[in-house]
């Protein structure tokens, strides 16, 4: 941090920079502020002019309408199940594999690790058609496992956890080994508790990623009752241009954004640390 103070901390021009950035930040917030404002307006008024947003009447009807439309709560529930499933799955698999690649030697381990890292270079689109076919053959589409399982093949978590386990001083587990503990016990009792910060960051990333994932759930879940909130809200956007129900759409955007926004506010420190950590490794 001290370094930066010298760039920003020099008297001349400082205020100007701050002023510019604050101005840009205000512009950055405008779309969300405008969305929020419109979400409290009756649709009939917005149809005439959105300028009516600056004056009363305001209403909560758009929000109560969301609660009455049957789909939304089901979609939220689906998103919760899918995101928790993906997050737990990634944490378990990545922790085990991370420990394995960092600590537990076996023949061919390093070659396998390189092969897994190559997986980071494969974009989802390159595998998505074959994946869809696989789940079709098993008649598994429109189920939670079909939406959850592909996310567990991502190599990112394994890479992150391997780096983290490697950074833990070896004396810690070697001491435990001499104490005659089994590999799994060392992993579970000694090392895993030390990785909690990494678990938190990987967990938040995985959760947000799964919650916001669009392409795979769009393809796999074709029945409305299996939509995630991301896909579900997209499905209601079709006749937007007529601007009938504009306020309702805005309320939907705010409502659907709230869960992730709360997660962001609570875990902001971890998220920032996660991005920074991933950047340095």
């Amino acid at each position: 941090m001290a370094a930066s103070e010298h760039i920003v901390g020099r008297g001349i021009g400082n205020k100007l920079i701050l002023f510019t950035v604050v101005l840009v930040a205000v512009i950055w917030m405008l779309p969300i502020a405008w969305t929020l404002l419109l979400s409290f307006k009756p649709n009939s008024e917005l149809m005439i002019s959105t300028a009516s947003a600056f004056r009363a009447p305001y209403t909560l009807k758009n929000y109560t309408d969301i609660f009455q439309s049957s789909g939304v709560f089901r979609w939220l529930w689906n998103s919760a199940v899918v995101s928790v499933g993906v997050t737990v799955g990634i944490l378990v698999l990545s922790s085990l594999a991370g420990y394995g690649f960092a600590r537990a030697e076996f023949k061919g381990r390093d070659i396998i690790f390189v092969l897994v890292l190559l997986g980071l270079a494969v974009p989802e689109q390159a595998v998505i058609i074959a994946r869809h076919q696989m789940f079709s053959d098993l008649k598994m589409h429109n189920t939670y496992p079909a939406i959850i399982l592909p996310g567990l093949s991502s190599a990112f978590g394994v890479f992150l956890m391997t780096q983290y386990f490697k950074a833990i001083p070896k004396d810690i587990d070697e001491a435990a080994m001499l104490d005659n503990a089994s590999r799994f016990k060392i992993f579970w009792k000694v090392l895993l508790p030390l990785t909690i910060p990494a678990q938190a960051t990987l967990g938040i990333f995985s959760f947000l990623g799964a919650w916001n994932d669009y392409l795979w759930p769009l393809i796999s879940a074709t029945k409305p009752e299996m939509f995630t909130i991301t896909v579900g809200i997209a499905s209601t956007q079709t006749n937007f241009a007529q601007s009938e129900g504009l306020g309702f759409l805005m309320a939907q955007a705010i409502f659907a954004g709230l869960p992730v926004f709360v997660v962001y506010l609570f875990f902001q420190k971890y998220i920032v640390r996660a991005v920074a950590g991933a950047a340095i490794s």
């Binding site: 381990r109 399982l149 503990a181």
Partner: peptide, 30 residues
């Protein structure tokens, strides 16, 4: 019963669960 230092095939059990997902849902579809 205790863990031994050095290569051992059973150590691969740590990475095996992930590798199943990796091979089935990434390598194979690729």
């Amino acid at each position: 019963t205790g863990a031994s230092i050095g290569p051992r095939w059973s150590n691969a059990l740590f990475v095996a669960p992930y590798l199943v997902f990796y091979v089935v849902l990434l390598v194979y579809p690729l």
